[in-house]
Structures are given as C-alpha cells and as structure tokens.
Simulated scan of single mutants.
Amino acid sequence: MDFQRVGTGEHTVLVLHGWFGSSGSWQALLPHLDREAFSYVFLDYRGYGERRGETGRYTVAEAADDVLAAAGELGAERFSLLGHSMGGSVMQRVYADAPERVRALVGVSPVPASGVPFDEQSWALFSGAADSNGNRRAIIDFTTGNRLTGVWLDAMVRHSAENSDRDAFAAYLDAWARTDFHTEIEGAEVPLLVVAGRHDPALGADTMRATFGAWYPNLELEVFPDAGHYAMDESPVALAGTVERFLGRH
C-alpha cells in the first residue's frame, strides 16, 4: 500500500480523514509540521483517495483493521493517531482493538464512539449527500457556521466528489453516525486531546464534554475560536502547534 509520508521523526502519527475528506485533505497543515520530531502518515479509507475502487464493508471496524494493517506495513509498533470527524471514531476503534500500540489520540471535531444522533430532517440532508453536491455544500456550510466563502465551499465539495466512491461515501454515513462502541473505551486512560471549533454547531465543545469528557479521564479539550468543523483548513498554524505540543509530551 502506498502512503503519503511527511517527516522522518521518531514519533509516528497516523492521520485519519473525515467523511468529506481524503488523505489529501490536510494540505494546509503540511507546511507547519515539525518533520524532524514526527513522521506523519496520511491514510485513505476504502473507496477514498488513492483507494478509490477498493471495495469492502465500509465500517468503522474495517477501517480500524486497515489502519492497524498499515501500521504493520510501516513497521510502526507504537504510534499516535490524529483523526478528523469520522476519523475520530476510527481512531478510537483502533485504540479499543490495540490499546497497547497507541501512544496518544488527537481528535479534530471528532465523532464520539457513541455515534451521532440525527433528527429526521438532518438525516435526509446527510443521506442525500451521496447523490447531491448541493447537499454536500449545505452540510459543509452549516458545520462551519455559515461564515466561509463560496469559493472554499465549492473546493471542499469538489474534493469530496473527486476523492470518494459514491457507494463508499453513502455507506460510511451509517458507519460513523450509527456505530456505538463507547462502552469499550469508557474509562480509558490513553492521553487524548480534542480540538473543537467554536463555529461547529454539532460537534462543538458541549458535545465533546458530554461524550469524550465522560469517557476519557485524561481528556484535554481545546476550543478554537476561529474554526468550525475543519480546523485544518480554518486554523492550520494554530492546529499544528496545538497538536505537536500535545504529542510532544507523549
């Protein structure tokens, strides 16, 4: 399997993207990373990015198995995980499956291990996104506080459409929204940093405290004042510094 790697440092960080993303979603972050202290490896799920056309069950458990397989290929016995949104669920599943291999977890607007509840109207919007770029644009706009430019929104939609297979994208919604394994990680003492955006209406600080805060005694929560759901795009310099200060302690 081919991986995008950035850095040659001793501390390996496996980076997991969100539902609308791919391994290429982190470009704005790359110039700000410490390449001597860390080795970042950017992974795709089945049906995304470099793995478009690769079939599977498209579940959180399968994605976590693939992450552990990638770590094996890389020769990374221990590693940290950086997960955005859906990637936050996957990283917790990796930890649940192989806790002894995980140094630390960093979630950027991460999906809790309990999944995400939806009302009927919101579910219709999200489930329609597989076949509607308009739905994708509306979701990205909503989750960033209806405050960013149309040019950026269009670029995000374009990246999503070009870097995910339709059926995989559709299936992963069920995977991250309706998978609940929080009883498996409850009380876990792994070091965990969660970054929440002040303009994220669904996975903001209150949701993080009610979920991650209830399950992880060592949670550190940082709220970014100038970000919604996509801190790697909205506040890349601040995110790189926050992530690396945390990981540098573990």
Rank of each mutant, 00 (worst) to 15 (best):
A98M: 09
L173P: 01
R78Y: 11
R52W: 00
V102K: 07
F224L: 13
F181S: 09
R249K: 15
V243F: 13
A113N: 01
G187Q: 10
D97N: 14
V108K: 01
L203S: 03
G150H: 11
S160D: 07
P31N: 10
V243P: 15
Y45A: 14
V111H: 06
E184M: 15
D141K: 04
M208W: 13
N146L: 02
S160G: 15
R57I: 06
V102N: 12
R52L: 06
G87S: 08
D34L: 05
V116S: 01
P201R: 07
E50T: 01
Y216P: 09
G53P: 01
V116G: 06
T8G: 06
T179I: 00
V151R: 09
A129V: 08
L30K: 13
Q4I: 07
N135T: 11
Y40G: 09
T207G: 09
G72F: 01
A188G: 11
V41G: 09
N163M: 10
E220D: 10
D97Y: 03
R136G: 06
G24H: 07
D34G: 12
V223Q: 02
A138G: 01
D233M: 13
A138L: 13
T183P: 03
D233H: 12
G134K: 05
G107Y: 06
V13K: 04
A238W: 09
I139L: 14
A64V: 02
H17D: 12
L221N: 08
A231Q: 10
S80P: 02
E244L: 06
D167L: 11
A69S: 12
S127M: 03
S22N: 08
Y48F: 14
T211F: 08
E100T: 11
R198C: 03
T211R: 06
S23Q: 07
Y45R: 05
A196F: 06
R5W: 07
A175C: 05
G248R: 02
R57S: 15
N133V: 02
P110H: 08
I140W: 09
D44M: 08
T149E: 14
R137V: 09
A155E: 12
D34T: 00
R147T: 01
T144Y: 14
F126W: 14
V106G: 11
D131T: 09
E100H: 15
A124E: 03
T8M: 10
S114K: 05
D180H: 08
F79E: 11
S39Q: 11
G150N: 09
R158T: 14
S22Y: 04
D141Y: 03
Q121S: 13
A202W: 12
M1Y: 05
F169C: 05
L125Q: 04
L247Y: 11
A175N: 11
A175M: 03
F142K: 07
E189S: 15
V67C: 12
V223N: 00
A96S: 15
E222M: 03
S25Q: 04
V15W: 12
W176K: 05
L125M: 10
V67D: 05
V108H: 08
Y45G: 04
L193T: 01
D44E: 07
L14S: 11
